[in-house]
Computed example of a mutant assay.
Amino acid sequence: MKTFKNLALIALIAVFTFSFTKVNAQQKEIKIANSNVIWKGYKVTGSHEGTISLKSGFLTFNDNKLTGGEFVMDMNTIVTTDLQGEYKGKLEGHLKSDDFFGVEKHPTAKLVISKVNATGKNSYKVTGDLTIKGITNVITFDLSVYGNKANAALKIDRTKYDVRYGSTSFFDNLKDKAIYDEFDLVADLEF
């Protein structure tokens, strides 16, 4: 009986403590029109780059310290900025096909921040769950925040998301047709 009373007292103290504890968490929506996500993929004979649009996103802060966030990318907006005309259209169509991101079946990709560690005044080591083509993997990257802006650079191994086209990890004798497994995403965000 005494143990039950002690547990009840602890529970009562916990309820009062949490009821009157001020939580300073603030969710800041990303201004999609003022934010950019640039991709760059590499192959044996060079590289290609372009943009992809965010569909939605937010960062969460507690006492002005980053604590979380979530981003959804519109995979239908993949464009290349280093080609023009027929070759531009062909590459964009191929990137949207099942050989790469299969955007008809998977129209969005998502990043959910699960862990944040401050590494400096405005810099963080961020860990999150990245979902591409319905496959989720943990990814870690650096993110910096200055005022109402944030930027991050991510290196992504596409083969972890079943994007195998042209990968020497899966195909032999590709020679100069080989495409490297890792690609870069650079995000400049405004909130």
Rank of each mutant, 00 (worst) to 15 (best):
T3F: 15
N6W: 13
A8E: 00
L9Y: 12
I10W: 11
I10E: 03
A11C: 11
L12M: 13
A14R: 07
A14Y: 09
S19M: 14
S19W: 14
S19N: 14
N24G: 12
K31T: 11
I32T: 12
A33K: 13
N34T: 11
S35G: 08
V37Y: 02
K43H: 08
K43A: 03
G46V: 03
E49Y: 15
E49F: 15
I52N: 04
S53K: 15
L54W: 00
F58N: 11
L59R: 05
T60E: 11
F61R: 03
K65H: 13
K65T: 14
L66I: 07
L66P: 05
T67V: 14
T67I: 12
G69Q: 04
E70I: 03
E70G: 08
V72A: 06
M73Y: 11
M75V: 07
M75W: 04
V79K: 14
L83R: 01
Q84I: 13
G85Y: 00
G89S: 14
E92A: 07
K96M: 04
D98G: 15
V103Y: 07
E104D: 13
K105S: 15
K110T: 09
L111S: 04
S114G: 14
K115H: 08
V116K: 02
A118H: 02
T119A: 07
T119S: 11
K121T: 13
K125L: 14
V126F: 01
T127N: 09
G128Q: 05
D129M: 11
L130P: 00
I135K: 11
N137L: 05
N137V: 01
T140D: 10
V145D: 02
Y146C: 10
G147Q: 06
K149H: 12
A150N: 05
A150D: 01
A150G: 12
A150H: 07
L154P: 08
L154V: 07
K155F: 06
D157I: 00
D162K: 15
D172H: 10
L174S: 03
L174R: 02
L174Q: 01
L174N: 00
A178D: 05
I179Q: 00
F183D: 01
D188M: 10
D188S: 14
E190Y: 09
